[in-house]
Amino acid sequence: MAEFINGSQNTNNAAPGDLASAIASATSYSEAFKLKAGLAQMLKGGVIMDVTTPAEARIAEEAGAVAVMALERIPSDIRAMGGVARMSNPAMIKEIQAAVTIPVMAKARIGHVTECKILESLNVDYVDESEVLTPADDKYHVDKTQFNIPFVCGCRNLGEALRRIKEGAAMIRTKGEAGTGDIVEAVKHIRTVNEEIAQAKAALANGGFLAISNLAREIGCDAQLLKETAELGRLPVVNFAAGGVATPADAALMMHFGCDGVFVGSGIFKDAKTPEHAAKRARAIVKATTQWTDMAALVEACEEHGEAMKGISNAGMKPEERMAGRGW
């Protein structure tokens, strides 16, 4: 069906679900983009943990985290404190970079090009253009193609994911509802993405590129990217779960929904009684993510995890209290 668009035959020969060869063979991806997406491919099957101090970063590394997200406050504390949440102090990010050998990510406000440039000069390994911080631009996200470092962005649905990829995001995560310890929104977002991919596949099968174009207009995304997604049967970059993952069972649930890995924000350190308790939780969540199909391992992980963060139910939350609505 590719003959409909500018005569360019952009179809890659990846088998359905074969993200690996899809990224490697995609003619629409530049070599620089493949390097960015490639790091995310190397993180697959792993856990990325929010950390606020070098000591927490070391706990994450020892637990087997594939990367850490350096930020001044975990999302649950950002939520509790209120006010404007911004990029973390570079001094704090540098301390964390010095403490660990695994990749270090950091968050910038949505649309804040300068925060992103600062993080790039700090040589962080990935920038999260994140709704957890207060957005800096109410109209545009950052043009991520202009950067040499890769970006991960949040999504609630397929259209949003593909808009971010079109802007240059090399990795996607569900938004969920950060800092709540309530998994319901993360589930809703991955389920929505999966349902819309199924819809796109059906559209391509039944109506070809015209039907894909219609659907692309409806969900507000690039038609070519939507077509590639439909052919592949999954997002064309690595997709992690985020926003409310608080227990080993939550992490395994998100893997069950087809996520490539998980971000754990507040779930490790919030309400942890001691650093040892946090370390136990971190190890248990890594175990549940890497061995999510092994029920005996999950039972062990849940036992080892101990008491989870108290959390805030999403059910009683006012719209203005939600972070997932930030970004578009």
Binding site: S21, G45, G46
Partner: peptide, 16 residues
């Protein structure tokens, strides 16, 4: 070895 990382990537190329 499928503990984490580029597992599918290798399998894809092995099959080819």
């Amino acid at each position: 070895l499928a503990l984490q990382g580029g597992v599918a990537e290798h399998l894809s190329l092995l099959k080819r």
